[in-house]
Design a protein around this nucleic acid. Structure first.
Lengths: 230, 230
DNA sequence: GTCCTGTTCGAACGTCCGTTCGAATCGGGG
DNA sequence: CCCCGATTCGAACGGACGTTCGAACAGGAC
């Protein structure tokens, strides 16, 4: 059967109740997992369909029964990964009201998922521009939504603490700096050697929040600019 | 003449006084510039030698007179870029004594070079794992040196301000977070739309320093944790 | 002019790429 | 058992890849 029909089948399964997952879905999931490893090791461009075939134990032609192109495979992988991050995040945020704790929850959720699924998240972060046209803009839209949600959380905090906020740092740069801190992790984190997600979230949360907030009269940040010798 | 001999030539030029730059060096420099554009647009793996040939206006075979492989070209490119960052940094640090200002200089230098040479710096940051064996470890060593220098600057500051430092954040994570903030820029910065290097260095410097330092009794960061944990 | 050395090139090499196709195989329902 | 759709595969396609080679070209020294 052609992949077009398999798309129909997949859609039907999604539209109905959380049905039993079909054999097709299960097998596709396995392939996605193996593909994650390969893309993680060699990069999207550097990985060949033959690499994917070897790692998943399925023949080269067999793979094309599950997705119609290498690019579509990357798309499925990225969409699935991002979907899970978003879903988990929304669930957690629902039961938290305190603005600062909401920001810290965002950070904790991101880092926990990042470290628990390091390979998939590297592929999501690093293979940013590999998808062309329609598929690319789809993922870009999800990332923009994620970014905007974080900006909203920060602005929420800003509104809740009128005096304490450091006005000279824009929300845009603050949030993008935070994303940089968190997403850069895949370049240096060694699970055996470095702190776990909770500890990292604590430290990065401290850096970010202390950096963006400013004590009412402590003048810690202001001094930084003025003093050259003090 | 074979590329091996050209290496000898290049070394001779470097060993002697700052001699006139040879025709060979100039032409190689032009090729490196064009290659930077191509690697920036399509990534190292995604760029073909034929792309490089087209963009530089030199024939496919002609390129191999200047470097012996595509991998070596990336190596030359990365080494040259990193060399300039390092050289500029050392020159600036020499004339600054104040520990905080030294950290801010590090940040300002990094961001200024990053934005002035965005394409080259993206290639340096993004194509981290493309080089194999010897060439890769050479660049890795330079990056480690750069990292250690930054840690030293932070520890310097830590020693100079015994009371104010936030002890719960390790220098390693602080510095790697800072690198993340700065290196992530290539994914979002639009020269027309976003702040310039000086402004960014100011804001990221504020976030980093306020985040890492802590007012003696302001208790701003401490309060953050107390809400849920203590 | 001629020589010589540094530079450039067209054409080809063997290999690997993503993708396709028709046939073989599987596995549950009759 | 047989049947039929779902699944898997070997083999091949045309094209693009990185690299090589010997010939051609450049331009200053004699």
């Amino acid at each position: 059967m052609s992949p077009v029909a398999t798309t129909t089948r997949a859609r039907r399964a999604r539209e109905t109740a959380p049905r039993e997952e079909t054999r097709f879905d299960r097998r596709l999931g396995e392939i996605l997992e193996h593909a994650t490893d390969v893309f993680y090791e060699k990069g999207y461009e550097g990985a060949s369909m033959r690499d994917l075939s070897r790692s998943s134990g399925m023949s080269l032609a067999g793979l094309y029964y599950y997705f119609e192109s290498k690019e579509k495979l990357l798309y499925l992988l990225q969409k699935h990964t991002f979907g899970q991050v978003m879903q988990q995040l929304r669930a957690r945020l629902e039961e938290i009201g305190d603005p600062e704790e909401r920001v810290r929850t965002f950070i904790r959720n991101h880092l926990e998922y990042f470290l628990a699924n390091q390979k998939a998240m590297k592929v999501l972060s690093h293979e940013d521009e590999a998808l062309k046209n329609g598929m690319g803009s789809d993922i870009v839209a999800m990332k923009k939504e994620y970014y905007r949600l974080c900006v909203a959380l920060v602005d929420e905090l800003r509104r809740a603490r009128p005096g304490e906020f450091n006005g000279s740092v824009s929300s845009r740069i603050a949030v993008l700096s935070l994303f940089g801190m968190m997403n850069w992790i895949y370049t240096w984190h060694h699970p055996r050697k470095d702190a776990d997600a909770g500890e990292l979230a604590q430290q990065m949360g401290d850096i970010f929040l202390r950096g963006v907030l400013a004590g009412p009269a402590s003048g810690n940040g202001g001094k930084a600019r003025a003093a050259k010798r003090k």
